[in-house]
Design a binder for these strands. Structure first.
Lengths: 353, 353
DNA sequence: TTTTAGCACTCATACTTCCTGAGTGCTAAC
DNA sequence: GTTAGCACTCAGGAAGTATGAGTGCTAAAA
């Protein structure tokens, strides 16, 4: 059977109605709202065809139709119009970027929150490392005789610090020595390259009696691990309950706990080639996401690192709006890190094109 | 009317049963389970008395009784037995402390997560500052000609850093100068004492054309603000749905959004004098918490700072267990920061005393 | 004076049954 | 190819009916 133009228009109308109302859509509604000048009976015939082709589903015989995942897929790929962000929206996003990104070291976390606030859906955020991370430089700052601060900076330009207290005293020259040793021996190494042997050699070279080297290096290792074993941050899970599909406690709970267990980041989808991707219901590999859609976008953090932000919601999701907002935000984040300006605000309308 | 010993025993039995079952408790259940050797009729009479005194409530005429907030209060104050942590429990807590507290600078956040995992209730964590925070020292580390790292340390021994890139180049001596100036002018000042005037004077003294000073100082201000305008972290909100009292979406949603809006920390209760406090239902000031109980504990972070961890749940909460776990954890955290050892593990049983 | 057995009464919950109306598929006419 | 008309389906709400846990009260027993 052929997917005529009219069928597409009807499909689109159904999906957009359904996204709004969350209720099965009947032929009459479409006959009236689609702009097509046909009777409900005609629409009925077309709907029957669309169902036969797998784009629609019927919850029960005497109900209207709802889009199937295949239907959403078609919609997302071809039918969906560009949602143009309104002036308010772009302003709000830019504002959020400027306000929230003050603590640059917490970008990933913050990005997740912004997304959730912006979309009113639960969001997740994680970083995905393209290359291996290494330490670019060490600095040791003496605080008192028995305490100093370790500052490490990675080649991805993440800076982390820790305050260390010692049971014994320490002199400034000692610290200097240690510092030099660290910077000559342990910079530019990936996690695997920092071997126990290397540690032993370095420790020996330093005449290191207090295990200071291992103290600093193990902090460095922690940092590298944190950045590589990526961490997930979720935000706004409470938004789930706003959607009627999660009225049933069961679903809500299973999805929520899936999202909130701060565990394996690998369960979260990541866009592959393109900067943005949409996963509809069963397209998700994870079982708990089978009737959930996920929209993910990635942004540039800096050399070799990408951030990933994603939105989770029912398959009946306002894809047009969400993708528009998410991609604008992701672009903004990329620019922010590339030291560039935020994208210019286009003077325009609100709502669909 | 007098609150006889038998009445107390009955009340306690009712509360403990209700905590378990979440369903109104009838006289028969108590007659059998309380250990008191009386008939259900007797219990019935006593229950009627307890209700008259305000310790119990009846959802409807033909149902059993449930504890009133006043009942819980009495229970918590006098009736509740000590819950003794089992070996597994203490081990688990110690383990969590050691595992999770690696990133010391994120303690507060991590503490919240641990609590939630440990109690299976939603948890929140925040820091409460006793005194005003000031910056103790500044360090500027040159990275490249056009970038440097700011490291600031507060008098509460929190260290924060930020990488700054400049549009212009910078020399090492310049940075040195700046550093000295910062350390002489801006250390030991509270937020309010860092006035625009002071900034102007300093800027002038430094012949600072690029606003470097204000750049660094505004970072310092951010840090101070973060520490003073305390921030709330919540964790494990999804646990709410596990409790039957939040079956009704309405309640669940309102409480969840109350908890998840990452806003005003002042809405979260903080223990006043004692290190631990329990707020039952209407004892909470916040409206959204009126039929919710909160257990909060505080722990020592370091000079002048305290951390606060709290658990939120239905008034029907296992107070004995929660308080035991929370207080053990809080002690552990305090010890951890006092450089001390974790509390020793007592060899003992599991469950109630 | 306290405890207990007995009994009538209450009322939330669960289970029926019935009804309504939105929506369908099909047929026959346009 | 499109439309009007009609019989049919079925989820969801309304109304009615049981069920049974639990109560309060009374009167007898301890």
């Amino acid at each position: 059977m052929e997917l005529t133009d009219r069928k597409k228009r009807i499909l689109r109308a159904i999906i957009e109605n359904y996204i709004e109302s969350a209720e099965p859509i009947g032929s009459k509604t479409i006959a009236e709202s689609s702009g097509l000048d046909v009777s409900s009976a005609t629409v009925r015939n077309e709907m029957a065809d669309l169902e036969a082709m797998g784009y629609l589903e019927q919850p029960h015989t005497s109900a209207g139709r709802i889009p199937s995942p295949k239907g959403y897929r078609l919609y997302v790929n071809e039918l969906m119009g560009d949602y143009r962000l309104s002036l308010q929206e772009t302003q709000r996003i830019n504002q959020a970027l400027h306000m929230k990104m003050q603590e640059l070291d917490r970008v990933i976390d913050q990005a997740g929150r912004i997304v959730s606030q912006l979309t009113q859906y639960p969001a997740f955020a994680l970083s995905s490392v393209m290359e291996r991370v290494t330490i670019k430089r060490f600095d040791l700052l003496m605080v008192e005789r028995s305490a100093f601060i370790i500052v490490v900076m990675t080649d991805t330009n993440v800076v982390r610090n820790r305050l260390v207290r010692l049971p014994t005293d320490l002199s400034e020259p000692q610290l200097q020595l240690l510092n030099t040793l660290l910077n000559t021996t342990f910079t530019g190494l990936t996690l695997e390259e920092i071997t126990p042997e290397l540690m032993r050699v370095a420790q020996h070279a330093a005449g290191d009696s207090y295990g200071l080297i291992s103290l600093v290096v193990s902090f460095a290792i922690e940092v590298l691990e944190e950045l590589e074993h990526r961490k997930v941050h979720t935000a706004g899970i409470a938004h789930l309950l706003e959607h009627p599909e999660y009225r049933s406690l069961e679903k809500a709970q299973s999805l929520m706990s899936y999202l909130s267990e701060d565990s394996d980041p690998s369960r979260f989808p990541v866009p592959k080639d393109n900067p943005m991707s949409i996963l509809i219901g069963p397209e998700n590999v994870a079982d708990a996401l089978k009737d959930t859609s996920v929209v993910v976008a990635s942004y540039d953090i800096g050399e070799g690192m990408r951030g990933v932000i994603g939105v989770v919601g029912p398959t009946r999701m306002d894809y047009a709006k969400i993708t528009a907002r998410l991609s604008y935000l992701a672009q903004g984040l990329s620019k922010l890190f590339g030291q560039g300006e935020l994208p210019p605000v286009e003077e325009n309308h609100d709502g669909k094109k």
